[in-house]
Design a protein around this nucleic acid. Structure first.
Length: 231
DNA sequence: AACTGTACCAACCGCAATTAT
DNA sequence: TATAATTGCGGTTGGTACAGT
């Protein structure tokens, strides 16, 4: 089977995301959700492939992504779960609310693995390092007897410290475009006309690309958002 | 001040799994 | 059931900041 490329090789931007691109993606996903990552960049006005948009959203722009340094509890949890699960980063990330698999993977490769491989030796004069190393030393010696309950407790503790989540609750500009949003908007995007019942009794789903009114409305929305975001 | 090495992190790539047709 | 499309995952790379020389 021949797989289609994840994105067109021509005309699509790669590399670091600009603030403007972030704004567009946040604005679009906040309003419409990610109903189709492959088509999303077209509607959001982004010259990116859907895969790139998805990654950017999941790893960086999501409101519940937790930024900042890893706590001791989080590091302990990562080490403990990695011992148990190996490189199953998404599974490990599921135990650390607000942390992404990519972030955990990076932290493991850049910090924790080295400590682990070198044996836990704290740098002189760094109490936090010493505490973590002490903790890892314990893990290193008795990880085979570590219970799932203790890992869960560590994860809970980490969750309790998650206080720096982003929030887009104040996107009042989004309220200016509420006309076509139905109660089941998130599960039935762009349901234009319920009055018509096709022969198979299947509703007709259309994206803004195929509807001039919605398309123009989307363009207006993006323009409005560009004016709103002043990061 | 200029150069080099290292650490860190965001993003890309390829493949596997899942879902749709 | 086979094929195609889409999503998710993990390995890897590239860019940047910073410390050391």
């Amino acid at each position: 089977m021949v797989r289609t490329p994840c994105c067109d090789k021509d005309g699509l931007k790669k590399g670091s995301w600009t603030q403007e691109e972030d704004n567009k993606l946040i604005a679009y996903v906040t309003r419409y959700g990610h109903w189709n990552w492959r088509l999303l960049p077209k509607f959001a006005g982004l010259a990116r492939c859907g895969k790139s948009c998805r990654l950017r959203w999941l790893n960086y722009l999501r409101p519940d992504v937790k930024r900042g340094n890893f706590s001791d509890e989080e590091e302990e949890t990562i080490v403990r779960l990695h011992e148990k699960l190996g490189n199953r980063w998404s599974t490990i990330a599921a135990e650390l609310p607000g942390r992404t698999d990519n972030e955990i993977k990076n932290h493991w490769h850049t910090v924790l693995k080295k400590r682990f491989q070198q044996k836990p030796v704290a740098k002189r004069g760094n109490e936090k390092e010493a505490a973590i190393s002490k903790s890892m030393e314990t893990l290193y010696s008795d990880h085979n007897t570590t219970s799932d309950a203790s890992a869960a407790a560590a994860a809970s503790a980490a969750a309790a410290t998650a206080t720096n989540h982003q929030s887009y609750d104040d996107l009042s500009v989004l309220d200016a475009y509420t006309e076509p949003v139905s109660a089941d908007f998130w599960t039935e995007p762009y349901l234009l006309d319920n009055s018509y019942v096709p022969p198979e009794s299947e509703p007709v789903y259309l994206s803004p690309m195929y509807d001039v009114q919605l398309w123009n409305q989307n363009e207006l929305f993006l323009q409005e958002c560009e004016g709103f975001f002043q990061w």
